[in-house]
Amino acid sequence: MKDVDRGALAISAALAGVAGYVDAIGFLDTGGLFVSFMSGNSTQAAVEVFGPGAAVALASAGIIAAFVFGVAVGGVAATLLARPRAWIVGGATVAVALVAVLAFGGETTLWRVALLAAGMGALNTLFLADGRARVAITYSTGTLVSLGLALAAAATGGSRRAWRRPLLLWSSLVGGAVVGAVAHRGGSPFALSLAAVVLAIATVILAVRPSTPERRPAAER
């Protein structure tokens, strides 16, 4: 994460907030499943697979598959497209906006939740290096591991400021979830529409940013 500039970090924090926000809405709509936090869905699927909640296990597995599909699509975009970050966030914007529109029509369905999961999965491909995500936008466990290691480094003579970035991303995710839970009281269509607006703004910002930071030669990473 240390090679991500301040502008990119600010965008990452904003998108982490959106991921937490959308995750809270998905959690409340489904009664306990996630669209950003796949560790939770994995555990849910595992404990229900041979129990009375086999349908829940299947739903969890479907959401996980959609999330992985979103990551794969984002990875392809990052490899093949010019200004891939704008395209990736733009795709997530379309996914969230579409679900918001469809939510006006009735109850939550699994494929709508899966569409949200795919959009959130794609966000994790914004900052890639050597085929790996440099910034954990939607998964808090990796961010907390980075935070713990940064604290360890500070305690043993290393950087005394490296802990700030993972703490910012984790706080953004949690804060977004809190706001999402509050916004959900006004209904999913309204809450998801707000998320789509924020993603659209992020898309425009990424589209007009200088293109140099988008892709960096291996020698510079």
Rank of each mutant, 00 (worst) to 15 (best):
V49T: 05
L147P: 01
Y21V: 06
V101I: 15
G142P: 06
G62H: 07
V94E: 08
L126F: 01
W170F: 12
V49P: 01
A86T: 03
L33V: 05
A72P: 07
E107H: 15
L98A: 14
T79M: 10
L167Q: 03
A129F: 03
A46Q: 01
D3K: 10
L169N: 02
G180N: 13
R134P: 00
R83W: 03
G91F: 08
G20P: 07
L102Q: 14
D5W: 07
A8T: 00
R112Q: 14
P189F: 02
S60W: 06
G187S: 09
G70N: 09
V49E: 00
T143F: 06
V96M: 04
G31V: 10
V197P: 10
T93F: 05
A154C: 07
G62V: 10
G157K: 11
A100P: 02
P213N: 04
A200D: 13
A45L: 12
G75E: 02
L206I: 09
L144W: 02
A162D: 10
G53E: 07
G186W: 15
L102V: 15
W111G: 04
H184R: 15
P210T: 01
A136L: 07
R160K: 12
W170P: 00
A97G: 04
V22Y: 13
E48T: 12
R160W: 09
I137V: 15
T109F: 10
M1D: 06
A78G: 04
V178Q: 05
L128W: 00
V4R: 06
R216Y: 05
A200K: 11
G90E: 02
G142I: 13
F27L: 14
D29L: 14
G26H: 13
I25W: 10
R215H: 14
N41C: 08
S140W: 00
T203Y: 09
A72Q: 11
P217H: 04
G157N: 11
T212W: 12
G148I: 15
A8L: 14
G121K: 05
R221H: 11
I201P: 04
G74L: 04
I201S: 12
G186T: 10
F190P: 08
A82L: 12
L15H: 06
G53H: 11
L149T: 07
G7V: 07
F27S: 03
V35E: 12
F37N: 15
H184Q: 14
F37T: 08
A78H: 06
A117F: 11
I205Y: 01
P166D: 04
A202Y: 02
L173E: 02
T93H: 02
V18W: 00
S39L: 07
